[in-house]
Design a protein around this nucleic acid. Structure first.
Length: 730
DNA sequence: ACAATGACTTAGAAACTCAGTA
DNA sequence: TACTGAGTTTCTAAGTCATTGT
């Protein structure tokens, strides 16, 4: 790869020299770019940033990459990559950095009033700009989304939103404009306005889009990097969250509350004592305060008004801060693997303890967390959605089998089954029937314990009334230093991946594509273990429906082809249906040209809207043309030979098999999210080593950002296994 | 003791991008 | 040569857990 040959050229093992840093300070500050003035170099810099793409293409074509003139972005990336934090001397306990420099936060622009009026009782209402803004927040909520699309959540959302909206009316105007009833409010004019704005944006010319992109890149250049102990690192969320309406998940009691605009006055900036303080980007404003706390990794923080929690600007997932703790997390999980036997014996031994209810609850909870991969489940407040984990499970979340008729023992397999049904993190449904008997004697004991714990309890009472995460974690910590409940999920996920991945022998003779499928199968097992779900969106549903339709069409076409074969055999060639002239496509193309023309000439918003309508119509024509074409795709222009028909039948057979596989995969995956476990739970070294062993290029498994995030894992040998190496068993 | 807070990880949805394709 | 849909990135909410405050 070109990396190695360029490595020596990169900035001294990734370190930006002192000289360079201070030089930057004088001009623009911490940003890793040499821009001196705003406008002038802009045009010059653009091609440099763009040069990234051609380089890649040339490389792909086998040409030599240009080493001398690598773009700024590429050079920064190389500098970041060249520094191998995992080979470095660690900083003292609790110290996160010695020097830290960054450029602060980007703030979204002020609200620009659009003047489109909402209706009340059918009449337009004149709103001051800050109220118009809030009305616009509401209008921008998708009417069929997770908040407004469901009657229960909609009720909460509307109550919160409208309560505050009315409050604002009262505060801002002495007269509330008579707005009292939400049902008389009509935000649809604003919604329509937003919709057309979106269309206009989508229909923008290439140049306009390029301009937007350039602006984004400029922002990335300015805010997107920090200098940590002399090295360049990527910043994660440097954009301040824009104001809007709080979108809680599930039945969040606060959904619909106004999330206020956050200004520099609310920001604490954290950086090194010697670092240049980033200038506040909003004229006339100032940071709340600047601090130099090197015990923490964040660059800036603010208090958010809805949940009253602190939010942070932190480095990106590819940074050394995140990388270090990620590696520690997986090392800890591997350490758990070393002593998992002892820990399981600990809780198994305590499951049947007669006298000690607390020990029994701890043991039972540990079993659940270990075997069912539940989260620990902290207590939740009044102002939060009612979701639970292990410690907060209530009797109402457990469905025991019906009691046996008058002492009749063992009435069947259902005896030890419990249906668990509750909402977990993000209000994701957990619904599984657990057959405790399938886990052997310990499983049966857990079942008995649960029945015992809930004896004489009301549905809304906790199953583990003696447990809290602190109690549980205190016990876990006594079994292994640093052990807490969440480590079990990491451990079990990684262990499952390793065990589920096929061996080199299993994969003998398979294509890379098939190996990737095998990897995804293992990944899916982990995702299911961790209950990583995604809701089937409407777009996905329709996409699946379209595929089904397409499959049916292909099948019908194949049938006709088989019929044609028979006709050929019996010499009835004249009965073979041939393809008709395609007139629709021509029509569509013309309409398209015309719409394009309109768009080019359009200057005023009205004309632009008109052009976009014309485009829509042309698209519809095109869709029709394509549908018609697809319908006859299997037909020949003139009566075919037998060979031609045979060839086409074979083609169609392949198409059908491929599509059927595609549909099956999509269907299986539609409600499982593979990404979460890949990003957060499976030790990347397992995947890297497996890829090396079975000769699958790592980029087939990890996309760019994941490769960056997991740089520290890329060097493991093919033989690497997930099993604790350091730290002996206690 | 235990409630509140702070810092950080984990999470799915939404927005965006880009490659395959008609 | 624009479209489409899959894949990726961004966004920010919602967890965990140790520390701090009362």
């Amino acid at each position: 790869m070109s990396e190695s040959e360029e490595e020596e050229e990169s900035e001294e093992d990734g370190r930006v020299t002192k000289k360079k840093v201070s030089a930057k300070k004088k001009t623009k500050g911490a940003v890793p770019k040499k821009t001196t003035t705003k406008a002038a170099p802009k045009t010059k810099r653009k091609p440099a940033l763009k040069s990234k793409k051609p380089t890649v293409k040339k490389e792909a074509k086998g040409e030599l990459p240009k080493t001398a003139l690598s773009s700024k972005a590429v050079r920064i990336e190389q500098a970041m990559k060249a520094f191998k934090w995992w080979d470095q001397e660690p900083l003292p306990q609790g110290i996160q950095w010695r020097a830290l420099e960054h450029n602060g936060i980007f703030f979204p622009p002020d609200y620009v009033p659009h003047g489109v009026k909402m209706l009340y009782d059918g009449k337009e209402v004149e709103l001051p700009s800050d109220l118009e803004e809030v009305a616009t927040f509401f209008a921008s909520m998708p009417p069929d989304g997770p908040q407004l699309g469901h009657p229960d959540t909609r009720k909460i959302f509307v109550k919160n939103f409208f309560g505050q909206f009315k409050e604002m009316l009262k505060d801002k105007l002495e007269d509330d404009l008579g707005i009292k009833d939400f049902d008389k409010c009509d935000f649809s004019p604003i919604r329509a306005h937003l919709e057309t704005q979106k269309m206009i944006k989508k229909a923008a010319t290439v140049e306009e889009k390029a301009l937007v992109k350039a602006g984004k890149e400029e922002r990335q250049d300015h805010y997107g990097y920090a200098i940590v102990d002399g090295r360049i690192e990527k910043v994660g969320n440097f954009n301040m969250e824009p104001p809007g309406l709080f979108r809680g998940r599930g039945m969040h009691p606060l959904m619909g509350m106004i999330k206020e605009r956050c200004l520099p006055e609310n920001i604490i900036v954290n950086l090194g004592p010697d670092a240049r303080v980033p200038p506040c980007p909003l004229p006339g404003h100032a940071w709340d305060r600047v601090q130099h706390d090197n015990k923490v990794t964040w660059l800036a923080s603010w208090k958010e008004n809805v949940l009253n929690g602190v939010k942070y600007v932190m480095l990106a997932a590819s940074s050394s801060f995140k990388g270090k703790s990620d590696m520690e997390k997986y090392d800890k999980a591997a350490r758990l693997k070393q002593c998992i036997g002892r820990i399981r014996r600990d809780y198994e031994g305590n499951l049947g303890k007669k006298a000690d209810r607390e020990a029994k609850q701890i043991a039972t909870a540990m079993w659940i967390i270990d075997k069912l991969a539940l989260r620990v489940g902290g207590e939740k407040g009044e102002d939060e959605a009612d979701t639970v984990g292990c410690c907060s499970l209530r009797l109402e979340h457990l469905r025991f089998p019906p009691p046996l008729e008058d002492g009749g023992e063992s009435s069947g397999a259902k005896q030890y089954e419990i249906e668990l049904e509750f909402l977990g993190k993000d209000s994701m449904l957990f619904k599984q029937t657990i057959d405790f008997a399938s886990y052997g004697e310990n499983g049966k004991q857990v079942f008995k314990n649960l029945r015992h714990f809930v004896k004489d309890k009301k549905p809304e009472q906790d199953v583990f009334e003696m447990l809290t995460p602190s109690v549980l974690n205190a016990h876990l910590g006594s079994l292994m230093p640093g052990l807490s409940a969440k480590v079990f999920r990491t451990y079990n996920a990684s262990e499952t991946l390793q065990n589920e991945l096929p061996t080199v022998e299993d994969l003998a003779g398979m294509s890379v594509g098939d190996k990737v499928v095998a990897y995804n199968d293992a990944n899916r097992k982990v995702a299911i273990l961790c209950n990583h779900q995604r809701t089937v969106t409407k777009t996905m549903e329709t996409a699946l429906g379209n595929l089904q339709e397409r499959l049916q069409l292909l099948k019908d076409q194949k049938k006709e082809l088989l019929g044609q074969k028979e006709l050929l055999k019996s010499g009835k060639t004249n009965k073979i249906r041939t393809r008709k002239d395609d007139v629709l496509t021509d029509k569509a193309v013309k309409a398209m040209d015309k719409a394009e023309d309109l768009r080019k000439k359009a200057a005023t918003p009205e004309e632009k809207i008109k052009a976009s309508h014309a485009l829509d119509e042309a698209k519809e024509l095109k869709r029709q043309a394509q549908a018609a074409k697809a319908k006859d795709a299997h037909l020949f222009a003139r009566p075919p030979t037998k060979e031609q028909v045979d060839r086409k039948i074979e083609q169609w057979r392949e198409k059908i098999t491929k599509l059927e596989l595609d549909i099956r995969n999509k269907d299986e995956n539609k409600e499982v999210a593979l990404g979460t476990s890949k990003i957060n739970y499976m030790d990347p070294r397992i995947s890297v080593a497996w890829c090396k062993r079975v000769e699958v290029p790592i980029e087939r498994i990890f996309a760019k950002t994941l490769r960056d995030k997991f740089v520290w894992a890329m060097g493991v040998p093919p033989s690497w296994r997930f099993e604790g190496t350091s730290k002996p068993e206690m």
